[in-house]
Design a protein around this nucleic acid. Structure first.
Lengths: 139, 139
DNA sequence: CCTTGACTTGAAGTCGACTTGAACTTGTAA
DNA sequence: TTACAAGTTCAAGTCGACTTCAAGTCAAGG
């Protein structure tokens, strides 16, 4: 668990320094000192960044992710929260699967225009019933 | 295909008038006249709105969706584009499935802390390898 | 005839996750 | 020892999809 210069973290994680600073500002990672001006991060930073990436993939906001770290730096995710998220993903997976199959069908469908394909119409009707609002989580 | 007052469209679609005006401004729907001040939309507007909702669910931006309407108002989606999107969805579905299973396992896992669960670690490693950038399409 | 509520306009604001800009500092290589 | 790449700060900007605001208009009901 040796300390890591920000340059090293940038390189290993692929994230720009600006993002690392931003995450630090939000309290998602913490720097343990400086090397001259440069931030030096604690050795667990790579693990934390992976965790953040994972959280983002699962559809959590940075704020939510931040709340999963206990003050001592360990994880404190409640298992119910995970199950809830998993159930949410499950729903979304089903939606996406229907969508994927619908699109595939539509692409091959012999109807002269997509609008005339009954399956496509069904898809549209489904979508119309729950419009996505704003930048709404797509997951 | 009778004309529809914006109030009726708002009601049937569940979208606020502001959204309808916004969509019109972007050229996604067109009003065919006025009733006093009020916009009156062409009869196909509900279908168009459904299509827009479908496109959004599939992860297209409003701009991309706009490009799918030919100038005459008919759809002109190229079937390859649909297949491409379907393939994209497929990938995303696989990711989400792995994620869902991982979360479910983690929730039930007997490891004292999530970080100690090997499956969880594997998930993190996967996520770490392709961080989500910005407001990146989650789909 | 008058009120009212749902529309109208154009401009500005919001939200999340960053990025960019301007001005400055520093460890390291030449 | 001097140049330089890569950091630093703080404030402001960006992007997409809308929403909100202030001020005005109008069709329909009482």
């Amino acid at each position: 668990m040796t300390a890591l210069d920000i340059g090293v973290v940038r390189e290993r994680s692929g994230l720009p320094a600006s993002t690392l600073r931003y995450y630090e500002e939000l309290g998602l990672i913490r720097s343990i000192g400086r090397n001259g001006l440069r931030r030096v991060y604690a050795g667990d930073v790579m693990q934390r960044l992976s965790f953040i990436a994972l959280g983002r993939h699962a559809g959590f906001s940075l704020e939510e992710i931040g709340a999963m770290f206990a003050p001592d730096g360990r994880l404190s995710i409640d298992r119910d929260q995970l199950m809830e998220k998993a159930d949410g993903l499950d729903k979304r997976i089903k939606q996406l699967t229907a969508l994927r199959d619908g699109l595939r069908h539509t692409a091959k469908c012999s109807a002269p225009s997509h609008m005339e394909c009954p399956k496509f119409q069904r898809l549209m009707r489904m979508a119309g019933k729950n419009p996505l609002r704003g930048r709404d989580a797509i997951v």
